[in-house]
Computed example of a mutant assay.
Amino acid sequence: MRKVGPYGVETLPEVLVDVPAAPAGCRGALVERARLHWRLADGGDPAALAEEFLAAHGLPLHDLTRPAPDHHDTDTRLCGAALYLSAAAGALLAGAPPAAPEPAPALPDLAVVVYDHRPTRTPTGGPPTPWWLGEWTESWTPDQHADAVDAVRAAIGRGDVYQTNLVGHAAARYTGDPLPALSRLGALPGARYGGVLTGDGWAIGCASPETLIEVHNGTLTTRPIKGTRPATPAGRAELLASAKERAEHIMIVDLERNDLARIARNGTVAVDDLFAVRRWCDLWQAESTVHASAADGLGLADLLRATCPGGSVTGAPKRAALTQITRLEPVGRGASMGALGWVAPGRIDLGLTIRTAAADGEKLHTWAGGGITWDSDAHAEVAEAAAKTAPIRATLAGR
């Protein structure tokens, strides 16, 4: 059932508000005004629902090219809102078939939380509770993961797709308060979208380096990441020299150019910093920047429909890749491979929820994967996914 209204966290303790991409001066000084939760079973269009809910609470995002209004009164200032959209909700917007059952069904598929900005910061809670994290249980074995890679390669050979991103899931039981563990993710090196979002009986912690979509002063920006190597001098040189990684990357850059062209002024889509190498924890990753001028009258709903789910975690063509994902992945993507960040008039900044973990009342959940092309080696793809999730699991465990 859809839930609307302000309320506190019941199953999980409260945490200082630290939403990914929230203004730095506001973190820890935000007070919840209203919230919306929506799940796929509720039916309807989550993009339209988010836009309508925000407008009803003083955040009109019907035209992202307009100057931001000044929201202010004597006691409190409307600051902005956290927005989370799951990968499953994004697939719905793209017209993809339903995915496998979710491993953490307590999480909503859409969460919108509107905040006031107080001049004084919220005090922190009491002493931390003892923390224990159990062993991780994978949703598929390395051999099953490798078989899925080979199935994608076969689909590429048939001409069904050019590239498909495969994602695996793992869960571990815990005792204690998971919020400090999830909050630690935001301190990982390269976590551009570090932060936490919580609700009744669930929490999401993010360490994502990837921009799904940013809107500022009428400019649309996305920063797709594709291509990974260990963060060593040899790894950097290997990444830059890899024809396979560059081809995989450029496929997704072209997909993102097409996504932005649907909502941009004609002739304004451009690419900067093609295949620039950035560092996240102990990995090098290749990133490009695609930008465009927003079309007149572009609203939040159409922005989400055009960009979700992100091309770098689906594949090309996007809908065909989503069909492959539905057939091959044994569980849903949960909090991962979706969108999470901050929205306000004049500024939208949503990260792609890679390098992301979630807690329900009993377990922590993580997801990791990679893009599969014709040149992919199945065992190398399994190893790459493990390398991406290792810093997340170590941080959650407190190491």
Rank of each mutant, 00 (worst) to 15 (best):
E32M: 04
A50Y: 00
R121E: 14
G334W: 04
H71Y: 13
G195K: 10
T141N: 09
P119S: 12
W284A: 01
I348Y: 07
A146K: 11
S288P: 01
A264M: 04
V271D: 08
T356N: 08
E138W: 06
H216R: 15
G194N: 09
G195F: 13
S242Y: 11
S293D: 15
W132S: 15
R121K: 11
A171R: 10
G315W: 00
A68H: 07
P127D: 14
L49W: 00
R347Q: 13
A359M: 08
T222G: 02
D45M: 01
L303P: 05
G80T: 02
D177V: 07
R35C: 06
L304M: 09
G58D: 13
W374S: 13
E102S: 15
P101V: 08
Q324V: 06
A359Y: 03
R279N: 07
R158V: 10
A321V: 01
P46N: 02
G90I: 00
A335L: 08
E214L: 10
P60Q: 04
A24Y: 03
D63R: 01
H216M: 07
A264W: 07
H216W: 10
T124W: 11
E362H: 12
L16H: 04
A203W: 03
A34T: 09
P67C: 10
A231I: 00
M337Q: 13
L166G: 05
D273W: 01
G369P: 06
I225V: 13
A68Y: 12
K363D: 15
D160C: 10
T232I: 04
P178I: 09
L328Q: 00
L274Q: 08
G125H: 14
A320M: 08
P60I: 08
R66P: 09
W132P: 03
M337S: 15
D200N: 02
E362G: 02
P69A: 13
W136Q: 02
A335K: 06
T11E: 15
A321Q: 04
G58F: 06
W342K: 07
I348E: 06
L298V: 11
T389Y: 01
A306V: 05
V290Q: 09
D109E: 14
E256N: 08
A170G: 08
D360R: 03
R158K: 10
L188V: 06
T389P: 00
G201R: 03
R236A: 11
A48C: 13
P224N: 13
L212Y: 13
H72D: 15
G195E: 09
Y7M: 08
R305P: 02
A94Q: 03
E10C: 08
A111G: 10
L328Y: 00
C206I: 14
R192A: 15
H62K: 07
G205S: 12
G338E: 07
G80V: 01
S183V: 12
S336W: 10
G338D: 08
R35A: 06
K388C: 04
G297V: 10
G346A: 14
P23W: 01
